[in-house]
Amino acid sequence: MQDFKVELLQKDNVQVVKIAGILDAHTTGELEKYFDKLVFEKKYHVLVNLTELNYISSAGLGVFMAYVETMRENNGDIKFAELQDKVFHVFDLLGFPMLYEFYKKEDEALKKFIEG
């Protein structure tokens, strides 16, 4: 799993998933494990920080689609923060901003979670 790293932090009751490197068909499996773990532990407030993500493919986006309903059904959500422009372009191209909240800064997204 060269050039790919996932880091999990807890801030208040929000799980911050920091993804670095390249998220494509090769690395989705790794990310999936983290989401399985979150669902297993009933942690449904997920903030995905992509500040260090350099590339995302459709398969990478698919992971978020596969888990977002579970999070929302349990009054949680998946929100995104600190995307590089080229990465946001892919999210935008496939219409993600219609379904997910995107924030420039992690703090803003955290505040949004806390305020409900």
Partner: peptide, 14 residues
């Protein structure tokens, strides 16, 4: 898995 994730991401399917 890899196949389905690509399709989910590409077409916003859950």
């Amino acid at each position: 898995k890899k196949f389905i994730y690509t399709v989910l991401g590409q077409f916003l399917i859950s």
